[in-house]
Design a protein around this nucleic acid. Structure first.
Lengths: 209, 209, 209, 209
DNA sequence: ACGGACGGGACGTCCCGTTTGT
DNA sequence: ACAAACGGGACGTCCCGTCCGT
């Protein structure tokens, strides 16, 4: 379960002309961190180095990110996105359809083409550090929980919600892996659609002796 | 450029009554370290943990290894081995033949079948940590220098020695990669021979416009 | 050298329609700060806590007071008071008489009976914190300078002005100590008069061999 | 409830010639800390300053003391002393006698004449900082608990043990206050004896209507 | 071979005080 | 008057690696 490209801060719905420096600092920190992690490795990079390259200080770093790992994991943005998207799905849709709807929203709001390169680099860095992989796993579980909860609030049973969540998570993972592959040209949304079809067709062939 | 399997300590040529305590402290440390690195990752493992699992203390760890990384890099054993093997090659052999001779010795002395599993695990751990990869690269350079020096002492010119070294290093790397592949059955020596042939045949097709 | 009781803000001479919001924000901050300093000690109290208890925010606190210490030191009010009072003294008065006049004004404008309890608590808090004692000392020097300057502008020589200032400062200190003593009933003005007499009579017994 | 003068480390019962540098560092840190606390106040002094003046580093400071406050509170030394002293009192003694015995031991082992000046300075510093006073209170409770437990192990009932503890604590406090008074010449032991007598005689005049 | 003090440095928390914008 | 970002710096924890003892 991975996410965004450039920072992807929550769009603050300001009346006119978003705040001047606000969206700057976190984005610059993320950028600096990713660069340094690629150059030197995650563990060899200190928070002070990240802050310095971003033209900021350690204090500011920790004001925006709970810890060093979190700089690669975009806060609760994805969780909010998913929660809203699942809840906003037409009430006639099945749990799985609602989940698919949410994944499509992700393709439009989070995994947009301009964030593809970033997401790919981020995935490579995470793959290279056990510490980061652990955080990634935790975030994945948390997001799954978010989806399940939202589905249950729509009236799905516990099993329905859990199952739909797992299938969506699987499709997500498959789609993300293909999307960041440099040879692939399709958008995240298309990859998700394909992956979901594959997953579903695989379920039809399940048998129990 | 990677090496040994089980510890592979220099065989201390004690006349009689060797091993008063337990002479395998370094070996136990290496074993414990590798286990822990696989379980928790290199950075999440502390030296104290390694020592404890080996039934030893932190002090003892640092008496045997300069630092935490070194526990995966067997001291100067390989360098000595290579130096002696190159020097011991029949004086009629060309630099490349002498290098090939040394690699074969490696297959008999260091990369023996009982060390294959260890070497494979070790390679995986190193691949997962930038810090370890850096040390690996340094060790590789140092070993290359050892071979080159030994070749020059046999009378090779600077260019001859450097070239032979690089081809051997390449063959070594290729052979090692194949050797630790679980599906391959051949010994390190055979893989080296094959790899050297491939490398050489590749050189014949080099052209400069 | 200590001063005011309740906030004692400069009376802003607004023509009409004063106090649109609640003009007592500084007063509430001072009150809250003093309470908290007594309850928890100065260093254990944060600015945020002070602001919260006053129903305000940290920003507002710093708009009214340069720093945390300053909440116990009433801005320039006392300095203005002294400056004006010295200047307003009849021009026939000696420097010491002018100073005494100013101290009497203090008793009417700043150290009024309703501020006695506050001043006592404030003194206790300051006594308990080196940081605050340092600030107190600085403020005392600054006030001394204010008096000296005002005296010189009245035509006093440098030595005359300095000497009168020091005697007044001493009488001030003595009087304040007695005034805040719960068993004493007299007003600040009377204590000042007494203290000045004592100080003066003590000077008459000075001898130089 | 206050204690020791110079560091007062547990006497390590080494065979011959105590370790070379061991007892040094903590003592030097305590000395440096007390000096700085007097010069600048507790809150204005940083741990790094203390360590530097002692010729050590921040790491070493925190290896010897849990936190900045603890540098003025001698670890568990006093607790051990009291525990042993109470337990070592002749079994025929009443709880109060055993407590008195322990206080006398304190006078011989901890509050020796050479530690008087130190204890006095330490008390003054603690009095000036709410943070330190809080720690002092906690330590006092802990020591009371130690005495009570030791008394109960001697067979005293809960009420007997608690009461004896409280009377001893009171006598301790009174005696310590007098002992550090520069005009008093008697040793801690004598002050304790006097104080205990006073406390006891005061109890005889208690009446309940 | 063991034990442990020591230096060094990163991490993460908390607070003060400043600045910028609403 | 409020809101929020920012710099700076202290505290306390943890770990590596060195160096001294036994």
């Amino acid at each position: 379960l991975s996410y965004h490209g450039t920072p992807l801060r929550d769009k603050v719905p300001y009346s006119h002309a978003v705040a001047r420096w606000q969206p700057d600092a976190p984005a610059r920190l993320v950028q600096a961190a990713l660069d340094l992690f690629e150059e030197q490795g995650y563990d060899q990079t200190t928070v002070v180095q990240i802050a310095q390259r971003a033209g900021l200080t350690k204090s500011t770093f920790f004001r925006h990110f709970r810890d060093k790992r979190e700089v690669l994991f975009g806060g609760d943005t994805l969780a909010h996105l998913l929660d809203r998207a699942v809840s906003a799905a037409p009430s006639a849709e099945t749990p799985l359809e609602a989940g698919a709807h949410a994944l499509r929203v992700l393709g439009q709001e989070a995994f947009t083409p301009d964030r593809r390169a970033f997401t790919a680099r981020r995935a490579a860095v995470i793959a290279g550090s056990p510490e980061l992989r652990e955080r990634e796993a935790l975030k994945g579980l948390s997001l799954s929980g978010t989806i399940t909860d939202a589905l249950r609030r729509r009236g799905a049973s516990a099993v329905e919600a859990e199952l739909a969540t797992q299938l969506c998570a699987l499709a997500w993972k498959i789609a993300l892996g293909r999307w960041i592959e440099p040879t692939n040209r399709a958008g995240f949304g298309e990859h998700v659609a394909t992956a979901l079809r594959e997953v579903l067709s695989a379920t039809t062939s399940l048998r129990l002796r």
